[in-house]
Design a protein around this nucleic acid. Structure first.
Lengths: 209, 209
DNA sequence: AAATGTGAAATCATTCACAGCA
DNA sequence: TGCTGTGAATGATTTCACATTT
């Protein structure tokens, strides 16, 4: 019943539970059933119970789950009870939007450094950060215990940047460039690509005609 | 062998093939095997062949797939051989980054209108667009044949905006707000949420300690 | 000789259904 | 009574393996 082999799909859903529970907590709801949670998230109660059962027994029969308790447990399971330092590569329009995105910090993620190869950008200040040249990547990653890299460079440069991050022991990469990155086993990749989302959407839209 | 019931996971992968083939075409490669494509995309050749087989027979035994031909077929299957008009709701930092994002237009998506409820924003010009008040949503959607809505408003307003889009016959929604949207059946939702991606990443990162 | 297309097999994920507990 | 936790059943997806074609 412990972390032996949790399916990845399950891990991908845990943050959804964290978010829903956070809202419920803000609404001062004390207890929630898998049924209620399922309504909010548009999923079946059975799936929620099964997912949670991979990690332990968090509920009370006949009653449901204590919101505060379950949230704390899930945050701990996901490692959200500590702060994760990330660096950003690429301070173009997208990169600057990421620096200023207010959603990371309250969620255990802290972008502590920004890099760019463009000499015009280096030295510029955005938010709390001053843009550093790529040559400072190794020392900064080591010094600030950076485990996550956020890639916001053009597609043509993305694989090179990803290679550099991997070389410097970054373990997780959030990639915004529209490429299919090649990384060694053990590196955790997440891709953000709105165009892919739209392109699969239209398959269904055209059937409505 | 025709569009009878194609699994959604398959549809979600087609855009990956489109992108890889587009690159191969740019590299002037004429023929590609499922093996080679699989290497690029880090997936098995069998999966690629099976996916494609839901839509027809595009390859030549002993040889592989003609890049140009397969790309054209896939683009047609996904409805990317036409232009799709979208509107943006919310022209804060994120919304402005979306307006200026150069990746949509070359891929059959055209953001033709931008809305915001903030009176200070209405009338402002961003790129080719002038921000309109939400009250103009219905007429603009109808007049410009907008089928897709892109939601870039704060979480607190997102469900209201989504409801308005649905009310006005938008069929697909690309949602950047960190919520679990409620939409009627038949509406195609895609969510972009980097925080969720990071929160599932850390589950694996903490195991490396 | 090489690679597709595809039934069949294997694996993986979801849902069911109910014993057990508050 | 109401809801959890979970094996068992079902359903979906991936992979295998090979006949077939160029």
């Amino acid at each position: 019943m412990e972390t032996f082999e949790v399916p990845e799909v399950v891990v991908l859903r845990l943050p959804l539970y964290v978010r829903a529970l956070t809202q419920l907590l803000a609404d001062e709801m004390e207890v929630v059933s898998s049924q209620q949670l399922g309504n909010r998230l548009q999923m079946t109660p059975a799936q929620i119970r099964k997912d949670l059962s991979y990690f332990g027994r968090f509920g009370k029969q006949g009653r449901g789950y204590n919101v505060h308790f379950l949230l704390a447990e899930l945050r701990q399971i996901l490692g959200l009870d500590r702060e994760w330092c990330a660096c950003l590569i690429g301070v173009g329009r997208l990169g600057r939007a990421i620096i200023n995105y207010p959603g990371f910090t309250p969620q255990a993620f802290n972008v502590v450094a920004a890099f760019d190869n463009d000499p015009d950008q280096v030295g510029q200040a955005f938010g709390r950060l001053t843009v550093q040249p790529m040559s400072e990547l190794p020392e900064t990653i080591a010094a600030r215990d950076i485990r996550i890299g956020i890639v916001a460079v053009p597609a043509s440069h993305a694989q090179t940047v990803i290679d550099a991050l991997v070389q410097n022991n970054v373990q997780g990469i959030l990639n915004y460039a529209p490429i299919a990155p090649q990384v060694p086993m053990g590196i955790v990749m997440r891709n953000i690509d709105p165009v892919l989302s739209l392109q699969s959407m239209t398959f269904y839209l055209q059937q409505m005609d």
